[in-house]
Nucleic acid binder design. Structure first.
Length: 375
DNA sequence: TTCTGTTTATATGCCA
DNA sequence: TGGCATATAAACAGAA
């Protein structure tokens, strides 16, 4: 049997125009697109078959002159591991933490592949959250009641995908609590937070800039509580909110809105242990540190911004979650029947439509370049 | 009842 | 080739 090998390459958006294989692109976490390059010794290009099949599912797109401007991701599996998908979802959220359902929603919204077989991959997501030490659970505050906890990244997890490979990390982030019985293999979420504390208290105020977080130790029965101070680089400049309207916690702002770098707030997230609690209760607060010291940011405040990458803050995993690249227009913004949809559709496809909506059942993930086709 | 979270088991593929 | 990282399935418990 011939061996099919695949590799992935990041290509800038500007190189995509006229690319016949646009169906095989996925947005990457850094604003470019991921393209799967299939090398099949038998010239049996399954990839192209997939592309053509996908295109034929939407005649208006297939025959339109706007095709070369469409940014389309295949309904085949995106080249990201569950861990990287979860990480993107968390880093893309205003508070840098997500509920399980928000993670589900993030993934489904971005990747058509994950709109099917939900039971399968959602089980895997839950497993990944529980199993991997890089994810820690942050219980809800009383102001935000609901089901399930928030999930955040362990501050020590760093940039787990700095090698650019989103399928497999070079090394798994693991917590080892040497103070515990070496025969004990189970690491609970309690252990994660406890260990986080120990690690941090032993580390110097490392590389990262930013803020000082107070994290309490989660105590095993019989032990006495203690507090530890840790440094954490969760300082993130925020520019523009990205998530579209049906995200409860990530409401949309106009896609053209920009914020000057100077006015971008620095967001600091703190985790606080609640010593009165008998279980692993860690609360969080988010501040804007640019505004005369610390100011608590309400969720409404946070909604004005969108996390973007901070190259200077290296200790935390700060990947951009792939907002629509400059010069592109996100079709998702129009799916709720906004009045400019008809003219937009006409401009981009050369066809008229009487509908105020785009059927996004299978084609939810299109990007259209704003550039004039003749230019 | 459904969702969330934990754990175990197994399979697959990559890499040193 | 063994170890590791990841994917998938499934059982189970607890919370909303």
């Amino acid at each position: 049997m011939d061996r099919i090998t695949s590799s992935y390459a990041l290509i800038p958006t500007t190189e995509l125009d006229g690319n016949p294989n646009i169906a095989d692109l996925w947005p990457s976490p850094n604003g470019t697109y991921m393209q799967q390059v299939t090398n099949n010794n038998n010239n049996n290009n399954n990839n192209n078959n997939t592309i053509q099949q996908t295109l034929s599912n939407n005649n208006s797109i297939q025959s339109s002159p706007g095709l070369s401007y469409a940014r389309r991701y295949a309904a085949s599996k995106p080249p990201y591991s569950y861990i990287s998908l979860i990480t993107h979802a968390i880093n893309g959220s205003p508070d840098r933490m997500c509920t399980l359902s928000q993670i589900y929603q993030y993934i489904q919204d971005r990747y058509a592949y994950y709109r099917q077989n939900q039971q399968r991959w959602q089980n895997s997501i839950r497993h990944s959250l529980s199993f991997n030490d890089c994810f820690v659970k942050v219980p809800r505050s009383t102001e935000r009641p609901g089901k399930g906890s928030f999930w955040a990244l362990h501050p020590d997890s760093g940039n787990m995908f700095e090698n650019g490979c989103y399928l497999r990390r070079q090394k798994r982030f693991k917590i080892r609590d040497k103070t515990k019985d070496p025969n004990k293999s189970k690491i609970t979420n309690k252990d994660k937070m406890s260990n986080l504390n120990l690690n941090k208290s032993h580390s110097s105020s490392s590389s990262s800039t930013i803020s000082e977080n107070t994290i309490g130790r989660l105590d095993s029965p019989g032990s006495s509580p203690r507090q530890a101070t840790v440094s954490e680089s969760l300082s993130v400049p925020l520019t523009q909110q990205y998530y579209h309207q049906h995200h409860q916690h990530y409401p949309q702002v106009p896609s053209q809105t920009t914020y000057s770098t100077e006015s971008v707030p620095i967001i600091k997230t703190e985790y606080h242990h609640n010593p009165t609690s008998s279980s692993s209760i860690y609360t969080h607060q988010t501040y804007d540190t640019n505004n005369n010291g610390l100011q608590y940011l309400t969720s409404e405040h946070n909604q004005q911004y969108f996390h973007t990458i901070d190259q200077s803050a290296s200790a935390s995993f700060l990947h951009q979650i792939a907002p629509p690249p400059p010069g592109t227009f996100r079709i998702d913004n129009l799916i709720n029947g906004q009045p400019d949809f008809k003219s937009f559709y006409s401009t981009m496809t050369g066809h008229e439509t009487t509908s105020n909506y785009l059927d996004t059942t299978n084609t939810n993930n299109y990007y259209f370049n704003n550039t004039n086709p003749s230019s």
